[in-house]
């Protein structure tokens, strides 16, 4: 993270430094994983009677929640 106190060319540089964080790249994980159908397009193993196709995709919701939570927490500290 660059030091926002030492802008190269005035206010806009501070702006970019403040808004950008490598943690944001983590957000692409829950964007891409739910789109990889070979991961979950199976019937077995079943969980509580749910075929993999259904329980694994419902589990991806947890993946999405954890990612946005982590990114929010990590980017918040950098204010």
């Amino acid at each position: 993270m660059s030091d926002p106190e030492v802008p190269a060319d005035g206010a806009p540089a501070v702006a970019r430094a403040k808004d950008k964080s490598p943690w944001n790249w983590l957000l692409f994980v829950p964007i891409l994983v739910p789109l990889i159908t070979p991961l979950f397009n199976h019937d077995s193993p079943r969980l509580f009677g749910f075929p993999t196709f259904y329980w694994l995709q419902l589990l991806f919701i947890v993946l999405g929640v954890s990612t946005t939570t982590v990114v929010y927490q990590m980017t918040k500290k950098r204010r």
Binding site: D19, L27, I31, P34, G64, T68
Partner: peptide, 24 residues
């Protein structure tokens, strides 16, 4: 059947997208 379940991945990937775009 399964084709209709697209609503689940659809509503998972929207939130990181909002995080990246609508906040700005």
């Amino acid at each position: 059947g399964a084709a209709g379940f697209f609503a689940v991945p659809y509503t998972i990937i929207i939130y990181p997208l909002v995080f990246l775009i609508l906040v700005r």
